[in-house]
Nucleic acid binder design. Structure first.
Length: 132
RNA sequence: UUUGACGGCCCAGAGAGCCGCCUUUGGCGUAACAGCCUUAGGAGGAACUUCCGGACUCCGCAGGGAAAUGCGCCUUGCGAAAGCAAGGGCCGCACGGGGUAAAAGCCGUGCGGACGGAAAGUGCCACAGAAAACAUACCGCCUUCGGGUAAGGGUGAAAUGGUGCGGUAAGAGCGCACCGCGCACAAGGCAACGCGUGCGGCAGGGCAAACCCCGCAGGGAGCAAGGCCAAAUAUGCCCAUACGUGUCCCGCGUCAGAGGCAGAGUAGGCCGCUUAGAGUAAUGGUUCUCACGGUCCGCAAGGGCCGACAGAAUCUGGGGUAUGGGCCGUCAAACCAU
RNA sequence: UCCGGGAUGGUGUAAUGGUAACACGGAUGCCUCUGGAGCAUUAAUUCUAGGUUCGAGUCCUAGUCCCGGAA
């Protein structure tokens, strides 16, 4: 079950990374989210993910809640997403991301819309999970 | 017993499975990271607010004084300080009693009070009004026509004490009684204060959360404080080599910079920093069982749904605010029993 | 995290403690054949709650929200 782990190397935490992805990557909105994505630098086959949460979203409790749900949604569905890509999510509405199911739906739907969910891979992963 | 008000105290659901996160112990692993196994720990009563303190750090500073600024009834206790608590005094408001022609003074209960000074000075007091503090005072009243007067009228938040009797040309503390007020003495009290006695016909409007005066406190900034290490680039110095001078060496001079050093210091890193200790920021997700509370459905058994306020960032003492539940005490009302 | 500043019609700004003013915009009416222009009228919990004061947008206290600075 190591595929579901979410160590620090799979997260974005440098200011320059965020700058590059947001300014030089693709952008798509929907489901109460904004997603920027960009192919990762050479040699990085994994999927990395970052979060940008504005203070306008709500109090510290609300912001923490949304961050945790989005992190969980990404962690559980990481294998379905296109590899070798850096993802940056920014929630715009706390109401449309109130529960874990909603956050998972939003992340998957938005990535599918962006063409970042290879359908074959998704089926493979699903069958692999049921086999386990 | 129930409900409500006030005051005080306590908790901030519990257990288990799976998937994860942060810090950390000991190993494996790596050039160094990464990664894997393992040990221990991981949000609050308000962590919120940033309204007052303190520690700590840097800057300033001989000593003294003053200013900005803040605080302000008294005593005691706790405290480093801010502040908190208890008791007392005085003032205001409400209710009740008593009193009166009607009030007030008086007594009791409850609630509230940022509660030193307005006879040190300055300033402001709209509109209305004759006049808002300096009285040559309007209408009026009286008159011996020089003047006297502040009763009555009206304005206003506020008008140079109030009520009654006497008195007078008309009036007026002009005189008297009661009340109010000021000053002195003063039983008592640690004190704030003040039982009471005497004197004074009355000085005196309000605002100091206006400037100000008095007393007390009182340097400034804040962990993004501050300290350490330190690429690149620029600067300075040294210097192998090269060139010039010179017959040659030493020496002197010049250019370039492969090299070395220097102080300052940017990017960056570390310390400050924590038996939670981050630097895109951990403390989570999900399933089951039980408990508590609320709500809905149901005659009932039972079942469904929901779970307050809120998230550490140098540490720490208070104040304030938000909020779910429980316990205790006091008071009030209703019901039941005697 | 630490430290500053602010809040007045829909918007941008005024207002020695004394009737909340101005510009633009909105609505209604007049004028016009209709529209524009013009004229008239109209709309404010001065962020909220207490307090000081005769009287508070202004002074004081507490809270809410917004903006800014510091690596």
């Amino acid at each position: 079950m190591t595929s579901q782990g979410f160590p620090q190397s799979r997260r974005l935490h440098l200011k320059n990374d965020f700058k590059n992805i947001i300014q030089g990557g693709h952008k798509i909105q929907g489901y109460g989210l904004v997603l920027w994505w960009k192919p990762a630098p050479l040699g990085k086959e994994d999927r990395r993910m970052g979060l940008v949460v504005s203070k306008k979203l709500g109090s510290a409790v609300v912001r923490n809640r949304v961050k945790r749900l989005l992190r969980e949604a990404f962690r559980l569905n990481r294998e379905r997403l296109q590899s070798g890509v850096d993802y940056v999510f920014s929630p715009r509405s706390s109401e449309s991301l109130a529960t874990a199911d909603m956050a998972e739906d939003a992340v998957l739907s938005l990535c599918r819309k962006a063409g970042l969910v290879p359908s074959l891979t998704a089926a493979d992963v699903r069958s692999a999970q049921t086999n386990e």
